[in-house]
Computed example of a mutant assay.
Amino acid sequence: MTDVRKSFIEAGQSQLFQNWDSLSCKDQEKLLSNLEQISSKRSPARLLEDCQNAIKLSETNSSKDAGAEIQPLPSTSYESLIGNSDKENEYFQVGLEAIGKGEVAVILMAGGQGTRLGSSQPKGCYDIGLPSKKSLFQIQAEKLIRLQDMIKDNRVEIPWYIMTSGPTRAATEAYFQERDYFGLNKGQITFFNQGTLPAFDLSGEHFLMKDPVSLSQSPDGNGGLYRAIKDNKLNEDFEKRGVKHVYMYCVDNVLSRMADPVFIGFAIKHGFELATKAVRKRDAHEAVGLIATKNSKPCVIEYSEISHELAKRRTKKVY
């Protein structure tokens, strides 16, 4: 345990031990144990370095950077199906065939609480005000059932992986159990937790304390999904089930087409390893991001990062 304390002090985090002498022996052990859990995966120095790099990347990753070259994606990388019913039907059949073979799974990112919605429950439990009073979870479960019913020649159960967090895991599982999994088979649903990361001050130079014996931690966001897939061995489960394609979405996207056969068929037909779906922008200043390239690399430019000049551009060469 002395090595744990030493590693944090050497990383410039002596503030974590400013109350050390006033702590009981039990609380001293608890503090060191909590710090050890944090540092067992990555050293304090590495965590700080990662945070600093993220801050630098954020500062330089704005489209307002005069030196950045923002251009549309290559024409071979995207397609619009608006007004193209033949292509839409073609992709639909390809996607539906993959679903019928059991090759498609769905991942739902549902780790958040409904705090901003005025609810203490997991966000997926929220009643969005429909006459039916159905929650987000119920709406999405019924979409999955409907899609399964579309497979006429084979009884298929689409695996549904639901990412929760520490504060929402128990409540989410209880919600599904109390409602008999909304008619789905319990065995096709897998709950798993997203990871957490320690919180830093705005400079990214110091860890923040939750209380005298533990660091403040927060869920690692949607970007932590891939680590969570690895840590929870979901990739091994994909292989065991024969899953080749995974459709991912966020719980508050109530309009999401679960395991959308058209979208999946599009990705399969073109051999894309990764694909994303977007709505067409209605006007220059609509608050939606852009999928484009920055310095010849694919990127997403948030609407808050788009300069006024860039937002108005309409030429074929540059957004």
Results as ranks from 00 to 15, higher is better:
8 F>L: 02
129 G>E: 07
216 S>R: 03
56 K>S: 06
133 K>S: 08
96 L>D: 01
231 D>M: 14
96 L>E: 06
83 G>C: 09
115 T>P: 00
160 W>T: 04
278 A>R: 14
60 T>K: 13
251 V>R: 08
16 L>Q: 05
92 F>S: 06
256 S>V: 10
153 D>N: 14
262 V>H: 02
259 A>K: 11
229 I>V: 04
234 L>D: 03
319 Y>D: 02
171 A>M: 06
177 Q>F: 10
12 G>P: 04
86 D>W: 06
175 Y>D: 07
17 F>D: 03
247 Y>R: 04
35 L>E: 02
224 G>K: 09
125 C>K: 09
298 P>N: 11
59 E>C: 10
235 N>C: 15
245 H>Y: 11
315 T>P: 01
229 I>D: 03
22 S>M: 05
87 K>W: 05
248 M>N: 14
15 Q>W: 08
26 K>S: 11
177 Q>P: 06
17 F>I: 13
59 E>G: 15
63 S>N: 09
129 G>H: 06
136 L>D: 01
203 S>R: 15
137 F>L: 04
159 P>Y: 07
233 K>Y: 15
51 C>A: 12
164 T>I: 05
105 A>N: 04
48 L>R: 05
222 N>S: 08
70 I>W: 10
228 A>H: 15
38 I>Y: 01
52 Q>P: 04
308 H>P: 07
283 D>V: 13
279 V>A: 15
271 G>I: 12
128 I>K: 15
67 G>T: 01
126 Y>M: 13
105 A>S: 07
292 A>Y: 08
86 D>L: 10
240 K>P: 02
52 Q>Y: 02
245 H>D: 06
138 Q>T: 11
192 F>L: 14
67 G>W: 01
211 D>Q: 13
77 S>M: 14
94 V>S: 11
98 A>Q: 09
66 A>F: 15
35 L>M: 05
64 K>N: 12
287 A>V: 14
73 L>C: 12
1 M>E: 05
271 G>L: 05
227 R>K: 09
211 D>V: 10
194 Q>L: 07
254 V>I: 13
41 K>M: 02
116 R>L: 14
142 E>G: 12
33 S>L: 13
85 S>G: 01
117 L>R: 08
178 E>N: 06
170 A>W: 07
25 C>W: 04
134 K>I: 12
34 N>F: 01
310 L>R: 05
284 A>G: 00
37 Q>C: 08
64 K>Y: 11
56 K>Q: 14
57 L>F: 14
